[in-house]
């Protein structure tokens, strides 16, 4: 996908902070949404995005030559979010609140989402929050695009059933 061209690639390759700030302005909302879907917490999502940008800086050569920047950034933030989530799990329980996910707009929908298998929830997040195509999701998760599409469909079907829409 080339609808979101990267900011000046040379500036990114040179590690100029303003180029990364521009990248943040363009993609942070999407990255935060994906990270939030994975970690379940806004603070963790922000940590993940922060870590992602530091890693993007360290591997800026690869970033500057990325052909699909949206998928590249979503993939990067997914890795960071998974690490943040794993770290959170390793922390003592007293630091973890009783509810693992912060309540969002529609508690019923959030509850239904939380009950999905992780792989389906992840595909939903990448499709709806990351705004990726099934091809891009396939590339991010290293699965065929058809599998990504099936998981998405199963997730929607399951949500529909959980919300009493049939099943």
């Amino acid at each position: 996908m080339t609808d979101d061209p990267l900011p000046d690639r040379r500036a990114l390759a040179e590690g100029r902070a303003e180029a990364f700030a521009e990248l943040y302005d363009r993609h942070a909302a999407r990255m935060l949404a994906v990270a939030r879907a994975i970690t379940g917490r806004t603070a963790d999502a922000e940590d993940a995005v922060h870590q992602t940008f530091l890693e993007l800086y360290r591997s800026r050569g690869a970033l500057a030559s990325a052909r699909d920047e949206r998928a590249y950034l979503v993939r990067a933030v997914r890795h960071s979010a998974l690490r943040v989530r794993a770290r959170r799990r390793d922390e003592p329980m007293e630091r973890e609140p009783a509810t693992p996910r912060e309540p969002e707009g529609d508690p019923e929908l959030e509850h239904a989402l939380a009950s999905l298998p992780a792989e389906q929830r992840e595909v939903l997040a990448l499709k709806l929050d990351g705004e990726l195509t099934f091809e891009q999701i396939g590339a991010v998760l290293a699965i065929p695009a058809n599998t990504a599409a099936s998981r998405y469909r199963y997730a929607l079907e399951k949500l529909r059933a959980l919300r009493g829409g049939g099943g």
């Binding site: 590690g15 902070a17 303003e18 990364f20 700030a21 943040y24 302005d25 942070a28 909302a29 935060l32 949404a33 939030r36 806004t42 999502a45 922000e46 995005v49 922060h50 940008f53 530091l54 800086y57 969002e104 707009g105 529609d106 929908l109 929050d129």
Partner: peptide, 18 residues
Amino acid sequence: RERIMPSSALRQRIVLDL
């Protein structure tokens, strides 16, 4: 669904760290 708005504080933190 409501999304997290990217905060300017996070942006500033990132720019400073970079």
